[in-house]
Amino acid sequence: MYNFDFVKPATVDEALAALAEEDALPLSGGQTLIPAMKQRLNAPSRLVSLLGIDALKGVCPGEGGVTIGGATAHAVVAREAAAVYPALAALAGGIGDPAVRNRGTIGGSLANNDPAACYPAAVLASGAVIVTDRREIAADSFFQGMFTTDLEEGEIITAVKFPIPEAAHYLKFEQPASRFALTGVVVAKFAEGVRVAVTGASEDGVFRWSEAEAALSDSFRPEALEGLSVPAEGMISDLHGSGAYRAHLVKVLTGRAVQAC
């Protein structure tokens, strides 16, 4: 990989200052960035590790929700969010493998917005709020298509605020090789209605399946999905499955997630 300066500040302000340099990038767990850099797909001049900033770490249950620091590792969420938001904890506990979960962070995952990643579905289905060094961004406007988010250059995700649904469940159907989501669905039931977010399936990245949300908000049973279908157009088609297959999986997984709630 290309060489770069490595810095590891202790505060967000220092990190922001360090990121002001041209082509500087934040580094969290490195579980996405390092493999990409090995392929020389990325040539940052400087990496600013966020893992030395204690303020970015931790799982804090609060009123009606839970706030997770941007640099909190998946394994920590899996452990510490289990009591407050079990579906989220289970999702975090199913990302990658134990070693990946010990390093990879929620902030890195959201900033990367891989179309097959798990967290984006949870954030979108929960209607979470992404907190950065400069603002708060609603989930509905954060994700802007594959590998694209509303983040500005040098902007750091400092935390994610999750409201806690009455019931929720994530089902990941694994891509056989990478074990990311070939299709994954989070169903979250709130008093105000049901939200359904789908990852892995669409060429536009994570999305909400609004027809299912409406139907499930009326009747929170798998049968409510009968008659609905997801169009195959716009779904990812690759060597692991056609668009039609993914569209089919969206419905199957949504039904099963409702069942499991």
């Binding site: 490195g30 390092i34 493999p35 990496l47 394994a75 493998d97 070693a99 010990n102």
Partner: peptide, 23 residues
């Protein structure tokens, strides 16, 4: 070189990590 095989697994501060995916 894609952080998937685990042949490089070590413990850092008591936790299992892939030493190929950590500076």
């Amino acid at each position: 070189d894609t952080s998937q095989c685990g042949a490089c697994t070590v413990h850092v501060d008591g936790r299992q990590v892939k030493s190929c995916t950590m500076f």
